[in-house]
Simulated scan of single mutants.
Amino acid sequence: MRIGLITPEPGHPLLAAASGLLAGEHTVEALDPRTSDVPRRPADVYLLKTGTPRALDLARQLEQRGATVVNTAAATALCQDRTRMAELARRSGLPFAATRTFASLAAWASGAQLSSSVVVKSRHNRRGDLVARVDGPAQLARLRTPWAQEPVVVQEFAPNSGWDHKLWAVGGRVFAALRRSELSPGGRGPDRPLEPGELPAGWADLVHQVGTVFALDVYGVDIVDTGGGTPLIVDINAFPGIRGQAGAPEALVALTLRRASGAPGPA
């Protein structure tokens, strides 16, 4: 089979490991969305590892020609827009953080009444976007100059342990780790391994539910424990890095071959 990678970074650890496992019996081809056009003869399946506008356009063109793309361009684009993400999640009954949208940080700041801490994020999920906790006027003032015109979403800060539960799913298989929140003053630091069996009851099922609602095969779900194992989803990512997770490359290979053969994603 021919497997295509839509990414400017085919050497990413997850993709490189999966490609190495596939290379013995299959052909793996990288399509850099910055420079590549739609091939005359599409591959059996494509892995969409980036959500840039050019990558999404390339994926859509491939889908229009009948190619299978994991995740689809539509599902990936949905996860790039935190407003649409929150609306779908909450409408579907997922425990997603309440989210308000503003045309710009300046528009929100002009009328903000900070009676409690909030988390401010870029509306559009991308590398280097804005994610910051704001506790009062001083923090808000520091954001206004560099981010004044940035479209943003605002979520109430949910008290928690300071650790994010990073959950990933690849074709139905769940992986997990603990990571210091990016809102922590000390920075993120390394992940702490976490076996799926160590998750609070129902969390793995919640991850599967996210995949069903968002039509995703490879995705990440960021959850904070707001007390007693009560989950609050704060972000959903299409095809994240999933670095350092034993078994993730093998799960990706199995998913890729299933989708290439025309079978549905999750096992």
Rank of each mutant, 00 (worst) to 15 (best):
I6A: 03
P13K: 09
L21Y: 14
P39S: 04
A16V: 09
G20W: 13
L15F: 12
L31Q: 07
L21D: 08
S19N: 07
A17M: 09
V38D: 06
G20A: 12
A23N: 06
G20S: 12
A18M: 05
P13Y: 10
D37I: 15
S36E: 00
L14G: 03
R41H: 15
I6Y: 13
P33E: 08
P8W: 07
R40V: 15
R34G: 11
L31W: 14
S19W: 07
I6W: 12
G24S: 10
E9C: 05
D37W: 15
T35V: 12
P13W: 09
E9K: 09
L21F: 11
D32H: 11
I6P: 03
T27N: 10
I6S: 04
T35Y: 11
P10F: 07
P39R: 08
L14V: 03
L21H: 11
L15H: 07
A16M: 10
R41N: 12
A17K: 06
R40L: 13
L31A: 09
P13E: 08
D37L: 15
V38E: 09
L14K: 02
T7K: 04
A30G: 00
R34W: 15
S36N: 01
S36K: 05
L22W: 01
P8S: 04
R34M: 14
L21P: 04
L15Q: 04
E9H: 10
R40Q: 15
P8M: 05
G24E: 08
P39A: 08
E25A: 12
G20Q: 12
A17R: 06
L15S: 05
S19A: 09
E9L: 11
D37Q: 15
E29T: 12
P39H: 06
P33N: 06
H26P: 01
T35L: 13
S36W: 00
L21Q: 09
H12L: 06
A16E: 11
T27R: 13
A23Q: 10
L22Q: 02
A17H: 07
H26R: 09
E29D: 12
S19T: 07
V28Q: 02
P13A: 04
V28P: 04
H12C: 05
E9G: 05
